[in-house]
Design a binder for these strands. Sequence first.
DNA 1: TATGAATGAGAATTCATTCAT
DNA 2: TATGAATGAATTCTCATTCAT
Lengths: 217, 217, 217, 217
Amino acid sequence: MPKIVDRDEYRKELLEKCFTLFTRKGYSGVTMREIAGEIDVSTGTLYHYFPTKESILEQMFAYVQETNVRDYLSLTEHVESIEERIELFGETWKKYGEYYQNVFLLAVDMFRNDGSGYYEKILNGFSEHYTHAMSERLNITPQFAKTLFVYLMGLVLHAMLTPKFFSYEDQIDVLIQMLKAAIVGSAGAEGSRADVMKEKIYNFIIHNVIRDNAVTS
Amino acid sequence: MPKIVDRDEYRKELLEKCFTLFTRKGYSGVTMREIAGEIDVSTGTLYHYFPTKESILEQMFAYVQETNVRDYLSLTEHVESIEERIELFGETWKKYGEYYQNVFLLAVDMFRNDGSGYYEKILNGFSEHYTHAMSERLNITPQFAKTLFVYLMGLVLHAMLTPKFFSYEDQIDVLIQMLKAAIVGSAGAEGSRADVMKEKIYNFIIHNVIRDNAVTS
Amino acid sequence: MPKIVDRDEYRKELLEKCFTLFTRKGYSGVTMREIAGEIDVSTGTLYHYFPTKESILEQMFAYVQETNVRDYLSLTEHVESIEERIELFGETWKKYGEYYQNVFLLAVDMFRNDGSGYYEKILNGFSEHYTHAMSERLNITPQFAKTLFVYLMGLVLHAMLTPKFFSYEDQIDVLIQMLKAAIVGSAGAEGSRADVMKEKIYNFIIHNVIRDNAVTS
Amino acid sequence: MPKIVDRDEYRKELLEKCFTLFTRKGYSGVTMREIAGEIDVSTGTLYHYFPTKESILEQMFAYVQETNVRDYLSLTEHVESIEERIELFGETWKKYGEYYQNVFLLAVDMFRNDGSGYYEKILNGFSEHYTHAMSERLNITPQFAKTLFVYLMGLVLHAMLTPKFFSYEDQIDVLIQMLKAAIVGSAGAEGSRADVMKEKIYNFIIHNVIRDNAVTS
DNA sequence: TATGAATGAGAATTCATTCAT
DNA sequence: TATGAATGAATTCTCATTCAT
């Protein structure tokens, strides 16, 4: 009788245990010994579950993809109101900020090391899938969902590379406020409500986007 | 004197020659031999100009920073009109898209390998410097410049990792259009012109952001 | 009692099952896992019967020696006529050609890996034993039996290493013909029969050994 | 300027230095460290000249083949009389006995490890070439040259595996005597000389091949 | 007994770095 | 300065062997 009941389950456990080390140091930057040490396993055992170092990269990527999508789908499953969904959306990005950084680092390693272009399809599929879900659940156009997604990625990146450039959490909050204003506020806006909204947006631009009205000509 | 200048100049030449290889394969992923091969120099010569592999990373980073800033500053130097500046801004991001990808990859390597936190200061300084320049030259608030910068980084990233997710160049174009509309359009807008702008923005949101007005409540 | 017999029997069965793999890949070239796989047994079970890899080599060698001798002895047990014995002798070498190749490969591994010189005694004993039996049963001098044995080994070797150099089976046939001619033909040859034989041999040499009578001086 | 003037020459020097160790321990039995140690070189240097362990096997084989053939061709180049050639032939086999053992061990490793069948062609070519040369120089038929070659290989083998089975050198001597008797003795034998020879051969068989004239029937 | 997961010493191989020329 | 051969520590990976089940 084998010690491990579910080999596949255990493999995922191992992946999870070394996820942060692996992504932070990078595929080429970690050694198998380091990984084994992190997992508290001998190198022999590590190779028992992953035939090569490269396979760890691949399986890590596959595992993250799987988990990621599943997590997101389960996220807003039982939430009905758009407003709450937006808030939950923000909470999630706040909560998983550091995790997304690591996922992103992993993607960079896939980009650098996967010659087959396999990862690209997966990543593209994930992006499309994710933005599609955003579009549906947050009641925004697919195009805008993409813009949002791009911006969020930029945010995660900056939070990682230049943590003092801004506060990641604050930026998420601002974004959530704007989304609520635009999406909830504009919904079914008619008559005077629409006018109020127009005014708000105009003022927002005047005060928050344009620097100096006098200079521009 | 002249020797030192030459030597330094030559070192930069070497850095430039291996920049793409270095960033694409990554610090831990390239070997000194590969780098020497790319530059068409023996490993001995390579070591003559860079005492260690790590020094290549550092000097590459310093070189990029220097060049980058200089490039940007020289870019809009003699352009007066805001509209033209915005356009030039767009052209630059289109032209240097791939270069920015590599710079970004380099930053990831600095992030992963620099224990001293030195790179972080540099990167932060650069971000602040760049957004400050954007703010001044494009007549936008520092806050919005940051937002823009974040978005652009997300754009570059996606163009690299998921090139099929969207067309980088098209996205830049869309962004430029919006910037022109918001910045130039709103400049000194008064009376009826302001009303027209409000209407435009409102319609933009209704048609391009909100997916389905009926569903939202 | 019965268990021990069974266990021993089973061990021999295992040896037989992996004999070809073991000899063809070589002691240092096979892994315990490969051997276990060939036998259709887990490595644990393999170690249950053979405490070390080296013990497989030793026991394989002992097993082959035992079997080999037993086989040969049983071979000509009930054959009376010399002529038939010679023919049977030829048949055996034809039949076991490939097997002898493997035995030989095994001997090479013993030669390479046995530091104690134990194998040498066994091998020498076997050679002596075998040539002695040949001498007795084929009615040839021990010296000629050795010559024959040496030649047969060379034949097996060549058939293995350079199969296109000649046809192993044909060479055995030729050898058998010559043996019959020399041994049976000369037996008790007297008077005119001896003369006929002399003539035959002389002609054989002239036609089959000497290449060109004119050139030699 | 590189330290080593002739890279190829140096590579052969390395091959020669580790030839015995490599063949005696066998391809799978030696480690790269051992080989490097034998050559008095670091493992790094070893890999500088041989990209893989397998390449050592291949190049060793190629080197031996080359050397071997060259050696043999130069051997009897300036010897005119057949008798002297036969004697020189014997001397060579005596002198190179141990070397041939190693060559043979090398061939076994090629047999075991070369999947492409490349070695087989080479080995066959060598055998044909060698026997052809023997045929020409010793004035024997190609067929008999093959028989001789096979026998000699068997001799080398036995001398290696069962050194106490006989004295390799004595056996070579006996062979040389027989060759001289058969080849030189029969040359241009006519009339009474031929009769003398016939008698000799007949007696040789009666006394040296047949064990017991009474038993045979 | 039988299994195959676990172990870690050791094997092949790589690579930053040094150094003689 | 330039070269590339030489080095050996470190890396990936293998494999005989152990051991819990």
